[in-house]
Each structure stands twice: as C-alpha cells, then as structure tokens.
Amino acid sequence: MPTLKMIVNNEPITLEVDALRPLVDVLREDLGLLGTKVGCREGECGACTILLDGKAVNSCLIPAMRAHGCSIVTIEGVGDVDNPHPVQVSITEEGGVQCGYCTPGFVMSAVGLLNKSPNPTEAEVREAISGNLCRCTGYNRIVKGILKSVEK
C-alpha cells in the first residue's frame, strides 16, 4: 500500500493507505477524528467538510492519496469545548445548532471563508455555506452566528 504523508491539525502523519479510500474514512477510522461527519458520501451535504491547504472541500470526494504532502484542518483543529473558535461560540449562542450533526461542516465552511475574506458580507456567508445541508435549523441562525463571530 502506498504511504501517505500529510499534516493533520499541525501534526505530521504517516500512514499506509489504500489510495482510493475516501479521506474522510482515513480521518475518522485511522486517526480517530470523529468530528468530521459523513452524511451522504457524494459531495451533497457538506457534513464532511475539511480544509485542504486552507480551502473548504468535501473529504468524502477525496481519494486518500490526493492529500499526500498537503495540510489538513479538521474541526478538532479549529476548537473544542474548552477552547472554542469564535465561530463555534457565536453559532451556538445564536441558536444555530440543534441536533448538531451538520455543525462541524458549517463551521469548517465558515472558517474556510474567513481565511479568504475576514470581513464577509451576509451574501458571502450565505454562499459559503450553500454547499452544506441542515435538516434542523432553517439556516438563518447559522448565518447570524457566523456574522456575529466576525463583529467580535
């Protein structure tokens, strides 16, 4: 099996992988990073969103070896309960989380946007999360939360 070397949440990782295995499975099963979720495995829901070299992508559509030599950030690298990222704080405060299954994906899309555009307009925020589906919230509170995190 080929050897995959990548940086995950600032840590160098070396693994033997099946080249075609979706990166999301490597992250969840081999590295135990269970914050990245699987909703559809077809790029449709955004639950598996991670940053690949700083850009938001669907990790279900990435064959593992494609990440060779790349830097990856998952939700675990963004923040946790003790040390949350401002986006996580504000989305929660604004009521943008219900069951929470979609939330890591939305946070990653938001962080991907803020990397590129630190002071986004509402339209930009809406576009940035238009590849993420949520069954519970109705989206508007997630938008408010992301915008509020920038005001802080």
Partner: peptide
C-alpha cells in the same frame, strides 16, 4: 459557474 455545486465542490 456559481450555480455549480457548493463552495466545497467549486474548490476542487
């Protein structure tokens, strides 16, 4: 182009 997929798809 903007009508294609979501941002994650368009990044790839």
């Amino acid at each position: 182009i903007r009508s294609i997929g979501g941002v994650q798809v368009r990044n790839m």
